[in-house]
Design a protein around this nucleic acid. Structure first.
Lengths: 337, 337
DNA sequence: CTACGCGATGAAACCGTTTTCATTCAACAC
DNA sequence: GTGTTGAATGAAAACGGTTTCATCGCGTAG
């Protein structure tokens, strides 16, 4: 009479039924080639008969590998990061890894808490968005001996490896491009900059470009807003009101840019004749809009894929790639500017 | 001389440094009230000094609780499910749970594989999208003794608990509503129906409504497409070509509807004068569009939140709620129809 | 004075795997 | 016939916690 007759099968039970030792069952599962064919088949038969599912917690604990990778993004609601996550899982999943996703809501403290949780769960690697983090978390990561990937930006002083593109350059070059198109009074619709290196760098890139152009009144043509459609609308209105002479607006995110274009439709402002609008992301809807959105294409999916590949390379002992990988970006001229 | 001087601190080490037994450390972490104040503070001091992070794998294994909940959605790229995930984590995260997210890519077999992986990782509960699943997975779940939640639809025969709304009714009622608005030749732009209970039910709802209306040619006004913006465009073109007399199109998803509206803008078809368009989702962009999109508001976030609450109630031993929870939907009339 | 209950603590068993090391046995070389 | 080798297998020791049960004082009721 069992203590708990409904209890799940353990490896021990499978071993017993197959008339082998527990070790052999473990080998059948993890290094089948090391087990004689006959034995292996006998064990597999028992495994299937009982729908045996090994306990990965126990396995991970013993092997000190969890086959889990932690990913912390600001929000999963924005499809930007969802694309990166998709890219990551396209590489890691076939390799047997599972993603553990957390969203920091753009809050470094929450990010730090997530880092702790994930370390506690003994992830095999950690992927963070951006290059500025809570000091405590930073220290923790530096001493934890696991691969850490920062993404979606570049930095001269990465924790471990950075994979992304230069937000500064992306914004700078788009601004210069707009100037090259003949726009002379360019406004900037940016994200909230507190504690967010990507938006900070983009704004800096815009200002740097304006400086090069010789426009020293650019500070007065900056509006900051959270990344959502309605804010794009209110943002563009604010910008237009703030400096009526504006002939182009560069939004540091497609969400804002699309929101702005839609608002222009409502206001009956001709885009780009009266007001040109450019975005940054090349989100899926950018090309569909009328007028279609001029924007900067970012390596959203590629960032994830590349991180996955670098990680696998490291796990397999192949030399780690460079510590900083710049995946670049590309200006996509369309109708809106 | 240690074997590995860089090795992370274990509970044993903390205990030793604090001059207590390992058990006491464990209690300080999990049931602090059971430890004398003085002892507790001494232990906590050591813990903080060394930035000790307990090994949750070991903890989960011993306690037989992982504090992880598995969630399987068709795709995380679509913000629909991202909203649900947000709702879920808004409830579960404060309770100390972590989500383990997997995307099935609308493939039951992949879903089944994910179910196995998650069971293997000993999640405390499992959340699935939809109500039709791979038979093997279904069997596995029925015998696994953990809470299982199906969501985003209803069914008379749930595995465990279903939380969602009636896709059939949502489509049916929107169709009837369109008819009530005076549209007489209504087309349907739906998702691919294979193996997807939500799209299947929506299409059935549309047909049921057309039947009630007395329109028996509706089958000829159905176009199916994957859920993305471009497909909304090609879909509406196909529909218009297939039956030029069409005066309204009901898209079973806002992505398709938005894609359709944008295509109409390009084609210069007046919406809703020449062609009315209605969607289903109330996605964030629906209200921003010009014309704004008439659609069906779904309890996206609420589904997640409610599942979280039901799960916690069960964990805390409170009686489980009803096995089927209908969160309803709401028709949102706007400008496009 | 003794028995009892209770708060605080610890020893030992256990959770279900992987890893390391040893053993067995058959094939093969000399 | 005797080592030598290598494939196949298993015993035992981790892995780092939690749970159960026992013990130790100490205040208090009888």
């Amino acid at each position: 009479m069992q203590k708990d007759p409904l209890r799940q099968f353990r490896m021990r039970d499978i071993a017993q039924q197959a008339g082998v030792s527990l070790v052999t069952v473990s080998r059948v599962l993890n290094q089948p080639e090391k087990v004689a064919r006959a034995t292996r088949e006998r064990v597999l038969k028992v495994i299937h008969e009982h729908d045996y599912i090994p306990d990965m917690l126990a396995g991970s604990m013993a092997s000190r590998r969890s086959f889990a990778v932690g990913v912390i993004v600001p929000t999963i609601t924005n499809s930007l990061f969802a694309d990166t996550i998709d890219g990551l899982s396209s590489v890691l999943e076939p390799a047997g890894y599972q993603l553990m996703i957390g969203s920091s809501r753009y809050d470094p403290v929450r990010e730090g808490a997530l880092v702790r949780t994930m370390l506690s769960r003994r992830v095999d690697a950690l992927v963070l968005t951006g290059t500025t983090h809570d000091p405590d978390a930073h220290k923790l990561l530096a001493s934890a001996r696991l691969p850490v990937f920062e993404m979606w930006n570049l930095t001269p002083s990465p924790i471990d490896t950075v994979i992304g593109f230069s937000n500064f350059e992306a914004a700078r070059q788009m601004t210069l491009w707009l100037h090259g198109q003949g726009y002379r009074c360019i406004g900037y619709l940016g994200g909230l900059t507190e504690k967010n290196d990507r938006t900070t760098d983009r704004e800096a890139g815009f200002l740097a470009a304006m400086d090069e152009i010789g426009d020293d009144a650019a500070d007065g043509r900056i509006v900051r807003a959270p990344f959502d459609f309605p804010s794009g609308g209110t943002g563009i209105r604010a910008l237009k009101q703030q400096c009526p002479g504006i002939d182009a607006a560069f939004a540091a995110s497609d969400v804002l840019a699309v929101g702005a274009v839609l608002e222009c439709q409502r206001q009956n402002w001709q885009v780009p004749q009266q007001l040109a609008i450019a975005g940054l992301d090349d989100s899926i809807i950018a090309a569909q809009l009328t007028p279609s959105l001029t924007t900067v294409r970012l390596p959203r999916y590629e960032i994830g894929r590349r991180i996955g590949e670098e990680f696998l390379a490291r796990v397999n002992g192949r030399a780690a790639g460079p510590r900083q990988i710049d995946l670049g970006f590309e200006i996509v001229p369309r109708e809106s500017a």
